[in-house]
Design a protein around this nucleic acid. Structure first.
Ligand SMILES: [Mn+2]
Ligand SMILES: [Mn+2]
Ligand SMILES: [Zn+2]
Ligand SMILES: [Zn+2]
Lengths: 148, 148
DNA sequence: TTCCTTATTGCAAGTATTTGCAATAAGGAA
DNA sequence: TTCCTTATTGCAAATACTTGCAATAAGGAA
């Protein structure tokens, strides 16, 4: 089964209606290897059909995220990016100073996942998480500043 | 030393100019026990002086966050909230289905913090983090749906 | 104190995202 | 197949946040 029909089937099970718009949006995100913004999904869908509206793209991407069928990340730029599940798993370390992105091993989250599950019954989305902080370079330069 | 002058001192060290606007914004966030949005900070500052502009509030709050002097969180609502450092530490578990917030023990993040530091030299902001996922209640109801 | 440099602000315009509502179209029932 | 219900869409307006630029004012030098 193609990744697209897996998604549409899941939605159908849940009682969502499968519209042309949703099919196009799903196709776009499922075929994109990388992070993609709502505006970019919109542009891609528009290449194939004029039947698309940016508000619908936002609503559909957020719905896919709510259903656990897509990732949604703030990477410190001024827009949210989305990705298909197969894009993960990895951690994005985002430097709040210089905005650099570092990819980290998602294994580091396994014990956290278990703890949140057993302690709070909470199933955390940790396959593609953003963690803000300060990168090694920025820390170094701020220490230098202190010495002066 | 009051929490406000600690912040302004830190900024002065770093070469930032201490303006009336910054003082008012710092005062507002430092005296707020809870999460507060930029719009709310703006309203509070406006009570005391007309010398304030929403763009400046956004710029200042983001600057405080960049400097590690304030927290900045997406709690699943349609606006970002800020908080003074003394508001933490805790984890906010945010249900992407029903938007419920659950507070979790920040201790769960200690091993992650260490690993990110030693492996990547990355100092993660984990004192007041939001983690998205599905709460126990929503998981239960989605399982019920499957059975039918 | 006065002056100068330049970081910071206000404003207005721009971009990103959300929302209310009437028109449309999935998909189940007949 | 046709019809009906109501979820979904498009549109336009609202809200949330960002940015370029000229005017202002910190704060260091004289
Ligand atoms: Mn990624
Ligand atoms: Mn909190
Ligand atoms: Zn950095
Ligand atoms: Zn929930």
């Amino acid at each position: 089964m193609s990744p697209c029909s897996t998604l549409t089937e899941h939605l159908r099970q849940k009682g969502y209606r499968i519209t042309l718009q949703r099919e196009m949006i799903i196709q776009t995100i499922a075929h994109s290897e990388q992070h993609i913004s709502a505006e970019e999904v919109f542009a891609e869908v528009r290449k194939h059909t004029p039947a698309a509206n940016l508000a619908t793209v936002y609503r559909t991407l957020d719905m896919l995220w709510e259903e656990g069928l897509a990732c949604r990340n703030d990477l410190g730029e001024c827009r949210i990016v989305y990705a298909a599940l197969q894009h993960g798993p990895h951690i994005h370390l985002v430097c709040r100073y210089c905005n650099r992105l570092i990819d980290a091993d998602p294994q580091a989250l396994e014990s956290l996942r278990e703890e949140l599950d057993t302690e709070y019954g909470f199933t955390a989305d940790l396959q593609h998480i953003s963690i803000f902080g300060v990168c090694a370079g920025c820390q170094l330069s701020s220490e230098k500043l202190k010495e002066e």
